[in-house]
């Protein structure tokens, strides 16, 4: 995928949507990596008896698609540093969900000699329910 220079990236650009399926295997790999032992994320029957439709994903599993949702059209320049992250969790993500993620460039500015880029995304599940809102700010040293 071609790497864009910052100047080529326009505020308001809507990235092509990303379809991101969540399954038990992905949840298992994620919780193993981050060391989360909560049975809600490891035992489907525990999650169901707690009233969820299936194995519950830790909400920060959103990080996996957030970083991909703004790579659907072009690659950002290398050397970017993830500086600030905001999330709003609206609805639990469970195994079997198929998320549609729409990311867009919402801001671009230079501060203290660094080039900042702010990208927002919203993920909805297969029922159209918004599950997570995200805003990621990265900078590139000039």
């Amino acid at each position: 995928m071609r790497e864009f220079a910052i100047d080529e990236i326009e505020v308001g650009h809507n990235f092509s949507p990303l379809v991101f399926p969540i399954d038990e295997d992905l949840i298992a790999k994620y919780v193993d990596t981050v060391g989360d032992r909560d049975p809600l994320h490891r035992d489907p029957s525990c999650a169901r008896s707690a009233g969820y439709r299936g194995l519950v994903a830790p909400p920060t599993i959103a990080a996996l698609y957030v970083l991909k949702a703004y790579r659907t059209d072009f690659a950002l320049p290398s050397g970017g540093v993830h500086f600030r992250q905001r999330f709003k969790f609206h609805h639990p993500i469970v195994a079997g969900d198929i998320l549609s993620v729409q990311a867009s460039v919402v801001d671009k500015y230079v501060k203290k000699g660094r080039q900042f880029l702010v990208i927002e995304s919203t993920a909805r599940n297969q029922d159209g329910v918004p599950v997570v809102w995200s805003e990621s700010t990265s900078f590139w040293p000039k």
């Binding site: 909560d38 993830h82 600030r84 905001r86 999330f87 969790f89 609206h90 639990p92």
Partner: peptide, 17 residues
């Protein structure tokens, strides 16, 4: 651990690395 469902359904984070 502290808020359970109240985190999954109404959690918000604003953090700087």
């Amino acid at each position: 651990q502290a808020f359970g469902r109240g985190w999954y359904e109404a959690g918000e984070l604003d953090t700087t690395f």
